[in-house]
């Protein structure tokens, strides 16, 4: 049994009295020590999927309407609020896309880490503080015993994201969910943060769900990849297989839009058009209006998920026809 099992997850958004599906039939597994990448353009439902797993969807406008999330043998969706909270920040932790605003501006970063530690572990404040300093040095913050007393506004975006990582790892989680952790950072800092995460993973054996809109980032760091488009997983495979046996035209498009180093053109052959909004009614395959291989069938019938190769699933009527 995998550490995290998501099965047929359905999430709906309530707008103007109507329930619109935003995430539909999403399934994937993550094992201990494994990194799953979820990739897709902005608006495809990646963050909502992550928040649903973490238990942060709370609210009346966005709701889980179906499916199962199992973590470490527990059925997360049937737990009480209290039981759920005892997992959050403890055995499962999350870091977010916005390092500049994800820390509370009025508290010292050390106190924010200590709060997380003492929520889940019996420790005195002094012990938790020592642990916070240790964590800060683990995420390579220089001068950790001084920086522990800094306020967030005294740190750069990259440093704040390291603090978020330190906080997330403070209770040795089995699963770390990272929702676009480097998107808001400078390119050089991006690489440092990703390397740090990979390094910590090998040391601590944490499973990671890494969300990105950048297939380049995913390909370097993940064991396997789920490609999401408008609320569905359209292709999923082990990372090395995804690139050699690529089967969905959307994945092809994402791959083509990886910026090429040393090239005058930044974006080669990006996918034309944009992700349709929730309100736009769509029949058939959600990608068909933007697809080069579109036929009548695509416009009328939703493609079922098929096992394209062992361990490689895809949702496309013409999965064999995409050049890898």
């Amino acid at each position: 049994m995998a550490l995290l099992e998501v099965q047929d997850l359905e999430i709906a958004v309530r707008t103007k009295g109507k329930l619109l599906p935003v995430v539909q039939g999403v399934s994937f597994d993550v094992d201990d020590n494994e990194t799953l990448g979820i990739v897709g353009e902005s608006g495809c439902g990646k963050s909502l999927t992550a928040l649903a797993i973490m238990g942060l969807l709370g609210g009346t406008t966005v709701r889980i309407t179906g499916g199962n999330i199992r973590f470490d043998g527990m059925d997360l969706l049937t737990l009480s609020d209290g039981e759920r909270r005892s997992i959050m920040g403890n055995r499962m932790a999350m870091i977010f896309q916005e390092p500049m605003t994800s820390l509370n501006p009025v508290y010292r970063i050390g106190d924010q880490i200590i709060e997380n530690i003492r929520q889940h572990q019996k420790m005195t404040n002094a012990q938790a503080r020592d642990r916070a300093v240790e964590l800060l040095s683990l995420v390579r913050i220089p001068n950790p015993s001084e920086r522990v007393d800094s306020f967030p506004h005294q740190m750069s975006g990259g440093q704040r994201q390291r603090v978020m990582i330190a906080m997330a790892l403070s209770c040795d989680p089995k699963l770390l969910i990272a929702d676009e952790p480097t998107t808001a950072l400078d390119v050089t800092v991006q690489k440092e943060v990703l390397d740090l995460m990979a390094d910590l993973q090998t040391r601590m054996g944490t499973a990671i769900v890494l969300i990105s809109h950048d297939l380049g980032v995913i390909s370097e760091t993940c064991d396997k990849v789920a490609v999401m488009y408008r609320g569905r997983v359209v292709e999923a495979a082990a990372t090395e297989n995804l690139f050699t046996e690529l089967a969905h035209p959307y994945t092809r498009g994402l791959l083509n839009s990886i910026p090429v180093v040393d090239s005058d053109v930044d974006w080669l052959e990006a996918i034309p058009g944009r992700v349709p909004t929730l309100e736009e009614e769509l029949t058939g395959c959600a990608f068909h209006p933007r697809c080069a291989l579109v036929t009548k069938l695509c416009a009328t019938t939703v493609p079922q998920e098929i096992e394209y190769k062992p361990g490689h699933s895809v949702r496309c009527h013409f999965s064999g026809k995409v050049a890898p």
């Binding site: 909270r85 005892s86 509370n104 929520q119």
Partner: peptide, 26 residues
């Protein structure tokens, strides 16, 4: 609605603690 409140909830804090220590304090 600010991002750091989501971080506070992600720590597994009780909603009352989030409301007082994080939301009200700001």
């Amino acid at each position: 609605r600010e991002d750091h409140v989501r971080t506070a909830r992600a720590k597994g804090l009780h909603p009352t603690r989030v409301a007082i220590k994080h939301i009200f304090r700001n």
